[in-house]
């Protein structure tokens, strides 16, 4: 019991202190750019609980999810194909390394040429940015499938879809998840950037509007919301990952001891 209490205290102590410091330091802030936390929080309640939740937050999140999931499907499929043949891999890898090295936000103006400024553009931008880390990690994971496991599967007649499902994808899943984790933070960045660039709704759009109209407390509340969103998404990701990779973490622990 005391151990749990101690853990809770350790987890909460610093956030509480930081929060208090922020609250007190800005308590009677006259600084235009740094309003008091009280003001920010009350504007958070006003700005983000009403219509904006549906008109700005929801579209952003939906675009992010669409783009991210599409990127996962595309990247894993392509990664499996490329990773299973040394020749295809050698052929594609330098080109992929180059495409991956392009900072994804610079693709926004290019994709705007093709897809305008609507939802499609934003989703395509997210897909384009998220695909590379997942793709290259999948290639790496598929390449590294254990030879003995491959022989085992073959000798027991495990082929085709079963081989893909029970062997290749499972074996590559730690790498795939590592790529997906990188892709998730990229995806959030691209969601915001694409909306800051050109949009009529969305979180990024709203925050830039607040900044341009000098609605500073609202802007701060938007930054806060983005932070919370990033935190929540990474939390969900970690839950999914720890479920999907529980075997892997167990295996690593057993190897280390």
């Amino acid at each position: 019991m005391t151990a749990i209490a101690r853990k809770v205290a350790a987890a909460l102590a610093l956030p509480v202190v930081l929060f208090a410091v922020w609250w007190l330091a800005t308590g009677s802030s006259e600084n235009f750019y740094f309003p008091s936390l009280r003001v920010i929080l009350s504007s958070f309640g006003e700005v983000w609980t009403g219509d904006r939740l549906v008109t700005d937050v929801l579209p952003s999140v939906l675009r992010l999810l669409c783009g991210y999931l599409a990127a996962v499907v595309i990247a894993v499929t392509a990664g499996v194909v490329i990773g299973s043949s040394p020749r295809i891999r050698a052929f594609a890898e330098p080109a992929l390394e180059f495409l991956r090295a392009i900072p994804p936000p610079v693709l926004v103006p290019i994709i705007m040429l093709f897809a305008g400024i609507g939802d499609v553009m934003k989703i395509v931008v997210i897909v384009f940015g998220c695909v590379w880390p997942i793709l290259l990690n999948t290639v790496e994971g598929v390449r590294a499938v254990d030879g003995v496991l491959l022989d085992t599967a073959r000798s027991y007649g495990i082929g085709g879809v079963a081989r893909l499902r029970h062997l290749v994808l499972r074996s590559a899943s730690p790498q795939i998840f590592a790529g997906m984790r990188q892709a998730l933070s990229l995806g959030i960045i691209l969601m915001v950037i694409s909306e800051m660039f050109a949009a009529s709704n969305g979180l990024g759009f709203a925050i830039v509007q607040f900044q341009r109209s000098f609605a500073i407390p609202s802007m701060w509340s938007g930054i806060l919301l983005l932070g919370i969103l990033g935190f929540l998404l990474s939390l969900v990701f970690r839950l999914v990952e720890s479920r999907a990779l529980s075997w892997y973490h167990g295996l690593r622990r057993s190897q280390r001891s």
Binding site: A10, A11, L12, A13, L14, P15, L18, Y33, S185, I188, I189, V192, I193, M196, G204, I207, V208, F210, Q211, I216, M219, G222, I223, L226, G227, G230, F231, L233, S234
Partner: peptide, 26 residues
């Protein structure tokens, strides 16, 4: 380490681009 873990886990996933408006203003 024990007392900063939660804070780091919270701050790390905050997308850096959220700071863009602040950077512009400052």
């Amino acid at each position: 380490r024990e007392y900063t873990a939660s804070t780091i886990e919270f701050l790390r996933p905050i997308p850096s681009v959220a700071l863009i408006p602040l950077a512009v203003l400052l």
